[in-house]
Every structure is written in C-alpha cells, then in structure tokens.
Amino acid sequence: MKLLSRQEELVLIAVWRLQDNAYSVTIREKVAELTAHDWSFGAIYDPLERLEKKKLLNAVFSDPSPERGGKRKKMYSITSEGLKALVGIKNLQESVWNGINKSMLKNLI
C-alpha cells in the first residue's frame, strides 16, 4: 500500500466526514477545524488533485451557483479504496504506537 502524506490523509478524512457536502471551501474549513490551523487553498488543491489521481477520491461538477460568481463546484466523495486507505493508515498508526506506555509520554502531554 502506498503511504499517504499527512496533508493527503487530513484532506481525505475531511472529505469522508463531510459526506455529501465536500468541496474545496468546506474541505478547507473542515481541515482547519480539525487541526486548529489556518489552511490556504493552495494547500488543499494539491492533495485533492493527487488523491483524485490515486482514485481515492471521486469528483463531480455541480451546477454553477451565483454566490461563487457563476463558477462550478467540484464535489468530492471518498471511494472504497479511499476508505481502505484510511483504515490502513489507522491500523498502521496504532501498530506503530502499540507498546508505548502512556507513562512514557506523561511529561509531554
């Protein structure tokens, strides 16, 4: 399995969480909310593009809306491979962290 970058992972999770309402603006907000950081659009576009290329995300164009100045939205949804990848990451994460005693991190948390 190809490993995802942190950004890709965050964006993928955001899309998954947003379910039917996942497009650039909401994804950016979601990622910002999850990480408590401000994210620029540029930092969202690239992972989105890569995820789409890796077939982890699906994209459809919605109809143009006036509040976007007549531009179309690109709506994203997670594919089954995407979900698998997320599960894989979670498992990997846990297996890597497994065996580390919480008391070892006490001073840091």
């Binding site: 650039s24 509040e67 976007r68 100045g69 531009k71 690109k74």
Partner: peptide, 25 residues
Amino acid sequence: SQIMRYLFPDNGEHSPIGDFREVYT
C-alpha cells in the same frame, strides 16, 4: 477579480476563483 481572472484563466474545469468568491461572500 480582474487580476484573478488573468491569473486563473477559465479552462472549463474547477476554478479557484469560485472558492475565493465563496469565502469572500
């Protein structure tokens, strides 16, 4: 927005201008 239109010419695909516009609103 004119500058933006120059920087991101409309190629029929997803355009960041729409995103900026939405956030602006």
